[in-house]
Design a binder for these strands. Structure first.
Length: 508
RNA sequence: GCCUCCAUGGUCAAGCGGUCAAGACGUUGCCCUCUCAAGGCAAAAACAUGGGUUCGAUUCCCAUUGGAGGUGCCA
């Protein structure tokens, strides 16, 4: 019986899609596509307390934006629905009771208070807490049924053997085995009647025909327990692939005040921690809003903890990734998210865009600070494309065109251009009439006429052009040289700024 | 504390018993140049430590150290 590959991404609606989640979703998607299988989205919302309003819609939106199209899911349907766990709530107790009857689970009436007291006592003594199976031994099934009928709250716990070993096989980590006596009798069905993750994931993966389970390593050590459940039901467990977390390097801060915590030498302390919204780490949505492009993010995230075989190439489209993806190339240890490299990828993707695409992306950012009717945005985009790393940088790169910044005379002094304030005064005085004499204000004319004048004067290009650019832009760095800037500003504005600069210099 | 997993430059990583230990980002220097970018060239930078196994270990085994995860009526 050859079964179709079916993978699933199963987030909890607790907020935005973080980058670690995006990567898990991506790998899961790639695996399904690579093997011609189905990719399924399932919402795991059994913890009502943690659920965040609107988070489910955010997940749909992010998945679409990321290009991770699922074949089945809450909002697209499918033959194995519903795909939201709270909508499947009636289904779980049935299976739990089946397990109770088979001896793989039992009802527990212990209150939280009792259990917390036990736990505290045991941990205080330095031991490892485990539920003591009190209700398994002391409460018969008949008594349990009677107490439940009488309305007493209860949970259903997994009955884990006290001896022997539990294990599972992972595509990445291989055979993982633990002693059963280190395992706790987890709650399968909570007092509110909803299943815990421990139970729901097993039931749903089985019922939905999931063949390959990809998820974070936070489940690595509990997966042997899940296999015990599969065994008890007589089901075939899926193939597992656990993924290490994505980390970020940051500085140590106080949890409440967010103030830096310094070491004894007064230095910042670097720490590596999991990516988290709490500390302001960017989500996928955030990155898009900051002007990172989708394909660059996906490309970078794919390579964070994974590398294709037999190639040093780093630029991959989604199709490339589907073709190349191979679980063997996944790294077993956590990877640190590097904003630097993401930004480099983004800049490369931007450079490789067709100019029209670039202009579409750039226009909204440019018009934040520039009046479209005053500037040749098409030309500006040409100049900007090779210099854009992130679109959000754009306003800050061009705002000087809209309004001349305060001019700092110190900028005129530049060693490489051999220019000083004095030489700049002379250069500006020299160039002003040349500019005034230009007929048609085009870049070509500006270039040809000014270069000719400089050549005739015997001065160095930079000695004249550096101060000119400074005088009309007020900036040490601009997205183009003096000619481009003069062209963009236009004749009138260029000469106005030039005059103002000369006046300022001679007043000093 | 206990359990599971992991360990190549600052970061991402190739390597899967014999290599001068790839490549990319970042860093530094030089070139190009009317600024900044981009581009070109070059440099610094790694097999955590200690034991085994082996003719030979980055590679296999064990320990130590370090890191991650788990130890919830969270997922």
């Amino acid at each position: 019986m050859s079964t179709e590959v079916r993978t699933r991404f199963a987030p909890s609606p607790t907020g935005y899609l973080h980058l670690g989640g995006l990567r898990t979703a991506l790998y899961t998607y790639l695996y399904a596509r690579k093997h011609g299988g189905k990719f399924i989205l399932r919402i795991e919302d059994t913890d009502q307390e943690r659920e965040v309003e609107g988070a489910v819609d955010l997940i749909y939106k992010s998945m679409k934006q990321a290009g991770l199209h699922y074949d089945e899911g809450p909002d697209v349907g499918g033959d194995y629905g519903p795909y939201i766990q709270t909508q499947r709530r009636d289904l779980y107790p049935k299976y739990a009771w089946e397990l109770v009857e088979k001896g793989g689970a039992y009802c527990c009436f212990c209150t939280k208070e009792e259990l917390d007291a036990d736990r505290e006592a045991v941990t205080a003594a330095g031991g490892t807490y485990k539920y003591n199976k009190k209700c398994l031994h002391n409460v018969s099934l008949e008594e349990a049924r009677r107490r439940i009928a009488a309305g007493e709250p209860y949970v259903i716990r997994q009955n884990i053997p006290t001896t022997g070993k539990a294990s599972f096989d992972d595509m990445l980590y291989g055979h993982v085995e633990v002693d059963c006596d280190t395992l706790d009798d987890n709650v399968l069905i909570k007092a509110d009647g909803l299943p815990t993750y421990n139970f729901a994931n097993v039931i749903d993966d089985h019922l939905m025909g999931i063949t390959h389970v990809m998820r974070g390593t936070e489940y690595l050590s509990s997966s042997p327990k899940y296999n015990l459940l599969y065994e008890a039901f007589g089901w075939t467990p899926p193939i597992y692939l656990h993924l290490p977390p994505v980390m970020i390097e940051s500085v140590l801060r106080d949890k409440k005040t967010r103030a830096l915590i310094l070491d004894e030498n007064g230095c910042e302390q670097k720490i590596v921690r999991k990516l988290s919204k709490r500390w302001g780490d960017p989500s996928f949505e955030d990155l898009l809003q900051q002007g990172y492009v989708r394909d660059a993010i996906v490309n970078y995230i794919a390579l964070l903890g994974w590398a294709p075989k037999d190639t040093n190439e780093e630029f991959f489209s989604m199709d490339d990734l589907v073709r190349l993806f191979d679980a063997n190339g996944i790294s077993k240890s956590p990877a640190i998210f590097d904003m630097n490299k993401l930004t480099w990828f983004n800049a490369e993707y931007i450079r490789r865009m067709p100019p029209e695409t670039y202009a579409e992306y750039a226009r909204p950012w440019l018009t934040k600070v520039l009046d479209e009717s005053r500037f040749d945005l098409a030309r500006l985009c040409e100049l900007l494309q090779g210099r854009t790393e992130i679109f959000s940088q754009l306003p800050g790169m061009v705002d000087f065109l809209a309004e001349m910044p305060a001019l700092d005379p110190a900028l005129f002094t530049n060693k490489k251009s051999k220019s000083t304030v004095e030489s700049s005064k002379a250069a500006l005085a020299f160039i002003k009439p040349v500019l005034e004499g230009i007929g048609e204000w085009t870049e070509a004319n500006l270039h040809d006429v000014v270069m000719a004048a400089i050549a005739e004067s015997g001065m160095k290009n930079a000695t004249v052009l550096w101060p000119l650019r400074i005088a009309i832009t007020g900036r040490a760095a601009t997205p183009g040289g003096a000619f481009e800037m003069a062209y963009l500003l236009g004749r009138e504005e260029t000469l106005r700024r030039l005059n103002a600069a000369m006046a300022q210099l001679s007043a000093n």
